[in-house]
Amino acid sequence: MIDFKTIGYALLGLFIIFNWGMLVSVTLRKMGARVGRRYGVRWFQPWIDLLKNYTLRTKLNHGIMFYLGPVLRLTGGVGLFLFMPLIYGSEHWMNFSFQGDLVLILYFQFFGTLAMALGAGEGGHPYSAIAISRGLAQVTAIEAPLALAVLALAVQYDTLSIKDIVAAQQGGMLHWTMWTNPLATAAAMLAFLGSFGHSPFNLVIAPNEIPLGPPTEYHSAYLGVMRTNGPILHMTEAILFMNLFFGGATGWLELLIKTFLLFLWSAFVGVVFPRFRIEQSVRFFVRIPLLLAVLAMILYM
């Protein structure tokens, strides 16, 4: 039987998360502007940009994979969201989470990047190809400490279900993974910076390195779909980290505050540190975060 109620709540959650993601990202852009002593973009700018991109008149296609690239990327973001429990203890906001969803979610994070690589590759622009090889190198370097940190958690709590990991952290702040497994948390929070793609790890899409990287050829509705995916994917990743390391959320207000603080962590580092070159960032991820994650694994084996 189709569970229409769960589907309805999942779609409503998706709508909230998308808009919250847009609002938080524009807030962070404004913060960056204020650090540079500018006023910055208006708070509703991302919505107008999105509307404009969807309604541009020219839509050029380079082939089937070019068309499917953004579609699969959005599928990756929405898929990640659909299997993510949002609010602990609520029967409505658990989406479609199940036992073992931790493994699925680790895979889903890679899904969008791979789709993007195939789609942008068909665009034929040489800059896309260079940026894809750089991007995949960086994502691989990020994935190693992140996967190890998450596995350390799975060993610590003896489960592969996000819901159970959240349940194990209830009963006060000192029960959070942040305190019970600080090494894994530190490793994962450094990987988090990389997966958000802010400075210092934003060389792949930096406009003044190789113009825009993989999305060089993407425009109008294709770009619109990719920009729709951005806030959903990043907000869902923030929710994942909140669930794994910071005790989850028992209400919407708690979820909004915690995800905002997680975005802020990325923004703070971003405005302070200049951009890494790709070999520097890969070297960074396979040194400190990977070492921390390996230590966390050894401690809980």
């Binding site: 973009v41 107008i48 993407y218």
Partner: peptide
């Protein structure tokens, strides 16, 4: 600061 008027820069003609 023309960003406050909704004017932004793109590095590629496609966008």
């Amino acid at each position: 600061d023309v960003f406050r008027f909704g004017i932004q820069w793109r590095p590629t003609p496609r966008q």
